[in-house]
């Protein structure tokens, strides 16, 4: 008993030391007064423009999809999905639940992130793998991709994402994921969903990518190979996707790894406002999202090939996403506008 208390205290001390050290490094980056001022001015300017935009959207109420249009979309999902007699498929997706969550989904997608979607018609019918970069500490990039396919594609498609298993084990959120068609990220689940002609979203960077510190933004981490092996095995096209904007929604100064281990979480980011707001500091800033859909890519070959062979194919997908990221960063006017 006493031993475990000492252990935990030591662990906390270690957390404290890491935080202190990293904060010092971060501060060193920001000491040039000139640079600090320009960034602050730019952010303040963009932020005021963005808040005006949000306010006018909310006032005009034009962000909501009309009820009959939403019903038409839900009806299409119902027709194209194989639910049992109790309204869910075997993964727990209940298309009628979309009705319940649509307002929140649309608020995030159209108002908060004012998402601009490019080339969504490139997502084909039938089975396909959607491969995207992953960022922003919390998976709002997945929300935006899902909302785009559900609300802005004709006909609509429900994205089935491979979700980190920590997330699906949570109360409320796990159930929400499940009813909205999101499944625990396992190769077997992915294979089954592809067999039933679904569009499966995979973030090959996984937890590594989403929790990377702010200073590494728009530098994709290493891609896993699992998605490519599945694509080769199930012979499905890959649609590369780039989400620009999410990197700036939450500023992760550093990952408190000992704390994450202590709480059994995939990551525990420290944000500047966390001392003031606590966990609320994880809420995203109203950045502007740009979602780019690339041309579907076809690959062929042996799914059990050597890592080196598969890595070459993975690199092509990564390069396609990188190219779209670069284009997006060059095209955008700012972080919030």
């Amino acid at each position: 008993m006493a031993g475990s208390v000492v252990d935990n205290l030591q662990r906390l001390q270690a957390v404290g030391q890491t935080i202190g050290h990293n904060l010092a490094t971060q501060l060193a980056h920001w000491t040039e007064p000139e640079r600090r001022r320009t960034i602050a001015e730019q952010v303040a300017h963009e932020f005021s423009e963005a808040s005006q935009e949000v306010a006018s959207l909310l006032l005009s109420n034009s962000w909501r999809t009309p009820q009959d249009e939403l019903e038409r979309r839900i009806a299409h999902l119902l027709a194209s999905n194989n639910q049992g007699p109790h309204g869910t498929d075997s993964f727990g997706f209940a298309p009628t639940e979309v009705r319940k969550y649509a307002p929140a989904l649309e608020f995030l997608y159209r108002v908060w992130f004012r998402t601009e979607v490019h080339d969504i018609q490139r997502v084909p019918e039938g089975r396909c793998l959607l491969i995207s970069n992953h960022s922003g500490q919390l998976p709002f990039d997945g929300v935006a991709i899902g909302a785009a396919l559900l609300l802005d594609r004709d006909p609509p498609r429900m994205v089935r994402s491979m979700v980190e298993k920590f997330a699906t084990s949570l109360p409320f959120f796990g159930t929400f994921c499940n009813r909205m068609g999101q499944v625990t990220g396992l190769p077997d689940n992915c294979r089954r969903l592809l067999e039933s002609e679904e569009a499966v979203l995979v973030f090959p960077e996984g937890a590594r990518g989403i929790s990377k510190p702010f200073r590494h933004r728009y530098r994709m981490t290493a891609f896993g190979q699992g998605f490519m092996r599945l694509a080769l095995e199930s012979k499905v096209p890959i649609v590369p996707i780039a989400v620009v904007g999410a990197e700036e929604q939450t500023v992760n100064l550093l990952n408190m790894e000992p704390l994450a281990r202590l709480l059994n979480m995939p990551s525990a980011p420290l944000t500047p406002l966390m001392p003031l707001l606590g966990p609320l500091a994880m809420l995203p800033a109203p950045v502007k999202y740009h979602v780019y859909f690339g041309e579907p890519m076809e690959f062929s070959g042996d799914a059990n090939d050597d890592d080196a062979v598969v890595a070459g194919k993975v690199a092509k997908v990564r390069a396609a996403i990188q190219a779209m990221l670069d284009r997006g960063l060059a095209e955008r006017r700012g972080i919030f506008i």
Partner: peptide, 9 residues
């Protein structure tokens, strides 16, 4: 388990 597949073989 939270990470069970939907179809346990």
């Amino acid at each position: 388990q939270s990470d069970n597949p939907a179809y346990i073989g």
